[in-house]
Design a protein around this nucleic acid. Sequence first.
DNA 1: AGAATGATCCTCT
DNA 2: GAGGATCATTCTC
Length: 219
Amino acid sequence: MADSFFSRPTLDVARALIGAVLVHQSPRGRLSGRIVETEGYIAPGDEACHAYRGETPRNRVMFGPPGHAYVYISYGMHRMLNVVTEAPGIGAAVLIRAIEPLDGVEVMAELRGLDAPYDLSGRPSRLLASGPGRLCQAMGIDLGLNGVSLSCSPLYIEAYEGRPLPIVQTTRIGITRSVELPWRFYLLGSRDVSVRHRATEAAQFPAPYRAHPDSGAAG
DNA sequence: AGAATGATCCTCT
DNA sequence: GAGGATCATTCTC
């Protein structure tokens, strides 16, 4: 995917990434998954954004060119993958929060320390990549990829080019500041979304759209 | 130099 | 749904 895709408003990018395929040509082979959940972080006015208080050694990638990976450690143990957006100097990025595993499911399970890559229904387990820390572990993404360009590295994104998808826009997860901003996007009906917000789903989509594949009659 | 703080995950109940 | 794990980064002294 070209850098120009990321050189535009962060929330546009966050929404457009839903349905795209994240790929890592890792030492263990091709690992990939469809992106089903993202969050936007934009320094000016967003206290939850790492870049809000200016540039530091850790967040300097966020102030660089769009289309580069910003990888950092959260809670001392989890890696988080973001893609830098907007023009250089702004300090904005999209956090990739969940994927539906596609290629390399067996390797992902091994990297995650799981016994079985599949759940009882025969689909890739939710435990593989439904969360920002999980997906980085499953995809073999570590700090060595911090700052790389997604247009010329083993880590890249293949654009989604199909019919418009039903995308829910709601508030972000796991933050304590600027909690009111509706800057999270996720694919309606995907099993691999980390946390659903049913009230928002009901408000944004009529009932027939909300049937969840594996959630039973109650939805 | 020491302390506080997380854009989380797992394991219980 | 609550609490512990576990450490890089940043802030404060």
